[in-house]
């Protein structure tokens, strides 16, 4: 019977890795087999797989936060970003691979929120892998029909005077929201501003942190 090792240490004194000490599942068995066959057939190498995992691990919301903070502080960059977000983020030095990115700017009048109703398309090559809720039936189903109710569940309540623009990632483009810069941050450096930018604020289900709490 499987048991939980969360409170246990391995003989080496490290926590058990959950995937290493649980009974092997059918699908893990398949992953190992597929990986070995791809290496044997010369499709890939163990090094290439490790490098790909490292590259994916290095992609995280802090990258997006740096892009947002620069857009807040550098008007020329903001213009470039809204014109061609793929080119602008590459120009900042981020390896976004072949991803085609569109930046959506929130203002006092417009609030953008991103969903993928057909699967779970996400700007992973900038922000890293999506949160579990982004892939959930509830988020995928409801966001296009009752976005304000979904946003309220995330603690975001918008005035009636703000238009909500939902973006369904149905095809080749990926989307990053540029949240509105919080009031009270005049004169802040891009680094300090980036610390206010949350993952959810770049999906549209959150707002940046308040400067008072940062």
């Amino acid at each position: 019977m499987p048991h939980d090792h969360h409170d246990h240490m391995s003989p080496s004194g490290h926590p058990y890795r959950p995937d290493d000490d649980h009974p092997l599942t059918y699908w893990q068995q398949m992953e190992i087999a597929v990986r070995e066959l791809l290496i044997e057939k010369g499709v890939t190498t163990a090094q290439e797989i490790s490098a790909q995992i490292d590259a994916m691990d290095a992609r995280n919301p802090a990258q997006g936060a740096a892009v947002v903070a620069r857009a807040w502080t550098d008007p020329a960059f903001r213009a470039d970003l809204l014109q061609d977000a793929s080119a602008a983020t590459r120009e900042m030095g981020f390896d976004i691979g072949p991803m085609r990115l569109i930046a959506l700017e929130n203002t006092a009048d417009e609030h953008n929120v991103v969903v993928c109703t057909l699967c779970s398309c996400y700007p992973r090559n900038l922000l890293g892998l999506p949160p579990d809720w982004y892939k959930s039936r509830a988020y995928r189903s409801r966001t296009v029909k009752e976005p304000r109710k979904v946003l309220a569940e995330f603690g975001v309540t918008l005035p009636d005077t703000t238009t909500v623009r939902v973006h369904d990632s149905t095809a080749d483009m990926r989307y990053v929201v540029i949240p509105a810069r919080p009031a009270g941050t005049e004169g802040w450096s891009a680094d300090a501003l980036a610390a206010l930018v949350t993952r959810d604020s770049m999906i549209g289900t959150g707002l940046p942190k308040s400067p008072d709490t940062a």
Binding site: V144, K145, E146, P147, R148, D160, T163, V164, R165, V166, H167, D168, S169, T170, A171, D172, M173
Partner: peptide
């Protein structure tokens, strides 16, 4: 819908 002027964009 409770906000008829809100919009949905999709790539078709």
């Amino acid at each position: 819908t409770d906000a008829p002027d809100d919009t949905i964009d999709a790539e078709i």
